[in-house]
Design a protein around this nucleic acid. Structure first.
Length: 260
DNA sequence: CCGTCCATAAACGATCTAGA
DNA sequence: TCTAGATCGTTTATGGACGG
């Protein structure tokens, strides 16, 4: 008992934080590096995609990486990126590349960026009842449910519809991304939850759970809150909170663990 | 056997605001 | 002033249970 009392203990304040130096007797004291700072990259921003995306790239994708943006669209993600620092492979439906069937070799890319439509209304077969008449019309024409371009299910089941058509697109594109990514490769997925048929669908949770089955590690999650006020029409009684935020999910394809 | 009711699934479409 | 839209509640269809 007397021995233990002779051992030196650091003096702690009420929060348990050391406030006094331990005696110099302690030879192998660890010296901590790094610096204290607050200008770090945060998990949530009230801003647009083109402002948030550079932060994600800076944090998770090293310069010199080869990145495939498989849903390039107008390239808004890259508006504030210095393209000298990366090799960008920009494809889209407009260039004839299906994000579920990429023209790249297995394990050939450092990063993949995926941003498909996340609204079931955009994927409807019937044009008069589908949403998105502008920039997403191409998506709708090609990926819409109930058309011959829609892929049947894994077991020959009918093609998915409504919200399931949205997740189906994410799942297939995720599996394809797994194929083309190198070990430790990064998959950046943009998504947003949606309400369909008066029902809440937490799309980002569904994607994370499904991708975990493929082996992806969900390394990071960013929330983008839109700056403007969105409305909804034809409401008699609001049921759910109007969504004004979306997600960037960052997945890692882990290096396979070596077995003994 | 038929019509009604109810629950659930499927289908559908409107409108107000920000930004140019 | 004009344009165009990263939804979500409402409406319609479907099918089973149930009573007459």
């Amino acid at each position: 008992m007397a021995q233990s009392q002779q051992e030196t203990h650091p003096v702690l304040d009420i929060f348990g934080v050391e406030v006094a130096e331990t005696p110099s007797k302690n030879k192998s004291q660890r010296t901590q590096g790094g610096e204290t700072r607050s200008d770090v990259i945060f998990s949530s921003y009230q801003s647009g995609n083109s402002d948030v995306f550079p932060n994600i790239l800076a944090l998770h994708v090293p310069e010199g990486a080869t990145i495939a943006d498989v849903t390039y669209g107008k390239g808004v993600f890259w508006r504030n990126i210095n393209l000298d620092n990366y090799t960008l492979l920009a494809t889209d439906l407009a260039t004839g590349v299906d994000c579920r069937d990429l023209p790249y070799d297995d394990a050939s890319l450092d990063a993949v960026v995926l941003d498909p439509p996340y609204m079931e209304g955009l994927l409807r077969a019937n044009k008069t009842s589908s949403a998105g008449t502008g920039t997403h019309a191409g998506f709708r024409d090609y990926y819409s449910n109930g058309t011959e371009s829609t892929l049947p299910g894994d077991n020959g089941t009918p093609p998915s519809k409504w919200h399931a058509a949205v997740t189906d697109l994410y799942f297939r594109a995720g599996r394809e991304a797994w194929r083309v990514l190198k070990d430790n490769g990064v998959l950046i997925v943009k998504c947003q939850d949606e309400v369909s048929a008066n029902k809440q669908w937490l799309t980002h949770v569904e994607i994370i759970n499904e991708y975990a089955n493929y082996g992806f590690y969900a390394k990071d999650l960013f929330v983008v809150t839109r700056t403007n006020k969105a409305g909804i029409s034809r409401v008699k009684k609001q049921v759910h909170a109007r969504k004004n935020h979306s997600y960037f999910l960052v997945f890692i394809k882990p290096r396979p663990k070596r077995r003994h």
